[in-house]
Design a protein around this nucleic acid. Structure first.
Lengths: 230, 230
DNA sequence: CCCCAGTGTTACAACCATGTGACAGGTGTT
DNA sequence: AACACCTGTCACATGGTTGTAACACTGGGG
């Protein structure tokens, strides 16, 4: 599934363990390090996809480690999420300043952690970042952030755009409302599942009769984007 | 939303209960058996997705049961996790020798149990879980949630879809109406057994004359999905 | 050949998932 | 402040789906 590798850097074994369990439940592979030295070794050796980095560390501090990682070319594009017990705005600013991609204050729920991590990973993973996708006269162009049907541009809202983009990059497969909330909304938000229906509706309307067949309802399951009519 | 069924085999009711509670919190359905005989009956009847098997059992020992299960073709691919109070390396080796997929020594934390169980399930779950199943021109594709016959898509309702999916993943074997209710409807619902007949009928109709021979009536017993005409 | 349990088939009412329009709050712009 | 836009949620409409009963049929045993 995800198969992503997460490096957890915290000097508290109990905290590392808690995080690891939560992440493993969500199907991530976990590495653990207690200090900056261990962390650096693992980063070089195992090349994790993302790093959870505690603010406070014995020896080299977390923020210092982050700064160094972001300076080195080979490690600069590994996303970093900073963890901290303090609720000081200062830290947040300094953390993001050195290149952390997100910032979580302890205590946090495992759910929140997983959600944020997921969000950062998705955001940070640029696969074929801006190749336009075209299906049966319907074109979505990420670079211009526009949707066109046979020449004329369509007026789709931000959420509908993300929804359509997700669908066009994941065709021929059913997604439950819950999955769509995770993938399109971002997982860390709480919204009703029925909200998905409404946005589906809006997207269909925006696409017009010419193309709304592409978004298919699978009763009892979810929605599917497919060029082949139901 | 795992929906996986776990069979817990242990002669100590308190331990079964503890495990069951932990697993149910993690959204697994639990079955319980106190000895090998009960266990075997439940395995045949309910076909759990994984078995937690205590080393020590009155009568037939856990290891003996494991050995038998792994010898029978119909049960050989059900993952088994051995539980034991002893910390003897011997047991571990013998346990894995007979085909157990993992091994946990008591006492263990619920977390550890769930984590291991999940790992085993993930590992043991054939990657083909999402792969389309094809039989004589009849194709069921779980990822797109579609059923096709030779090219054209078939219109099957949610229940018929689940029924067909179950049959196609459990071919050449007779299932009673009761078993089908457990497997397809979900065990803890009360519906008339005759309801199965009706859905069988609907599924047959949906499949059309070309394929309805696949679903065969076994008078006095139940139904069977088989490529070989009755 | 008749009878009866078992199964096929149909109809139907209740239910449930989804479609749809409206609305209120929020955000940013002018 | 007024405005346009977007968002999430609700209430209601609609149509598909479901379980059940009722009746027709079948096959095997007496």
């Amino acid at each position: 599934m995800s198969g992503k590798t997460v490096l957890i850097v915290d000097d508290e074994p109990a905290i590392r363990e808690m995080i690891a369990v939560a992440l493993e439940m969500a199907d991530y592979e976990c590495l653990e390090a207690a200090d900056a030295r261990e962390a650096h070794a693992l980063i070089i050796d195992r090349q994790p996809d993302i790093i959870l980095l505690d603010w406070m560390l014995p020896g080299t501090s977390g923020i210092e480690l982050a700064r160094r990682l972001k300076k080195e070319e080979t490690t600069a594009d590994i996303p970093i999420i900073m963890l901290t017990a303090k609720v000081e705005e200062d830290n947040k600013i300094r953390g993001l300043e050195v290149g952390a991609d997100d910032y979580i204050t302890k205590p946090f729920s495992p759910r929140e952690l997983v959600a944020r991590l997921k969000a950062v990973l998705r955001r940070a993973t640029p696969p074929g970042i801006d190749a336009p996708i075209e299906v049966d006269g319907l074109t979505l162009d990420p670079s211009s952030h526009r949707v066109a049907a046979n020449d004329s541009f369509l007026n789709v809202g931000p959420t509908e755009y993300r929804l359509l983009q997700f669908f066009m990059t994941h065709q021929e497969r059913v997604y439950t409302r819950s999955q769509l909330l995770d993938q399109v909304w971002g997982g860390n938000v709480y919204v009703e599942e029925r909200t998905v229906d409404v946005h589906i509706r809006r997207l269909r309307k925006a696409l017009g009769e010419r193309h709304d067949y592409l978004i298919q309802t699978v009763r009892g399951a979810g929605y599917r984007f497919s060029t082949q009519p139901a």
